[in-house]
Amino acid sequence: MRLLKQVEIQPGCLNTDGNRIDSLCGLSLSEIYRKVCNGYPKFFKMDGLCKTGFVAAEILLEGLTPEQKAEGSVILFGRAGSLATDRNYENTIRDPENYYPSPALFVYTLANIVTGEIAIRHKMQGESSMYVLPEYDSEAETRTVQAAFDESDTPLIVSGWVDYENDDNYQAILNLYIKD
């Protein structure tokens, strides 16, 4: 397998293949979205975890054709998963006097929705998985990606780390792999 590209996003910093992209550094996730994508209003319905993964994937997969992506997979790792949204959802049910559970929040209280959002956006019908680990482990990532290439027909995998705590604390390190 071969690593084709890497995108790294955290507050104040956006690198592709280790090179800082000055025009996008220091922008919020929504501002990055407006620069690199636009025209996908569903973005604004997403929670922080999905927005983080979504914009990183936009930059990572830029220029690939639908055919190249069609059988692609999204295999991500993270620690917090959907916890930021879990806390927001909890706020809609805590007070019995103001009890209005929000379906639009609840759907994002699953850690794997970010893999689904990327798969939907890029029409990737290979695998999708979210694995929770205590910290980013690039060796675990490469082993998992290699095993997925060995054991399935997917020719392309978006993998890496996606974690979101709040607007001041999030990180995506996404890698694009192809099967040789």
Partner: peptide, 12 residues
């Protein structure tokens, strides 16, 4: 054997 595929259609 095992297999995993995304519909790439809708989140819910």
């Amino acid at each position: 054997a095992s297999s995993n595929h995304n519909d790439a259609n809708h989140i819910s």
